[in-house]
């Protein structure tokens, strides 16, 4: 339900790097979404499209990379990926694990359409 807030945060970060975008100058925005970040990708894409519709960023694609939940096991000292709601080490079965990835959301990069930047 908070995908709209997340889309707005993403847009805010994009504008810090491209403060005055020309039409179609931003080709895509690549983000990384952890599997445990409670975000529905389709809904986030929808919200991003909705808030960019009447702006020069219209048409910029939101590229979502899904990050699995990664853990370190305190019992057998290994790192693995897990599939919630199972929170145990897949190798030794211990529940003494530390989650090391897959919980947050990051803006990775912005891809620009250089031709449009040069033409204008």
């Amino acid at each position: 339900m908070h995908e709209l807030s997340i889309a707005q945060e993403i847009l805010g970060i994009v504008y810090q790097y491209v403060p005055d975008p020309k039409e179609n100058s931003v080709k895509s925005v690549r983000i990384r979404i952890g599997k445990l970040s409670n975000i529905l990708p389709d809904s986030l894409t929808f919200c991003f499209e909705a808030i960019t519709t009447d702006t020069p960023l219209k048409g910029a694609k939101l590229e979502i990379i899904h990050i699995p939940v990664a853990i370190t096991c305190s019992n057998c000292n290994t790192t693995s990926e897990i599939e919630p709601p199972v929170f145990t080490c897949p190798l030794c079965g211990s529940n003494q694990i530390k989650i090391t990835g897959g919980t947050d959301m990051r803006v990775d990069s912005i891809e620009l359409n250089d031709e449009i930047e040069e033409k204008t």
């Binding site: 945060e9 993403i10 080709k27 959301m105 990051r106 803006v107 990069s109 912005i110 620009l112 250089d114």
Partner: peptide, 13 residues
């Protein structure tokens, strides 16, 4: 085609 690398948390604010 150029790419701006960002690598920032969405909820950093």
């Amino acid at each position: 085609m150029s790419v701006i690398t960002i690598e920032r948390k969405v909820l950093e604010k």
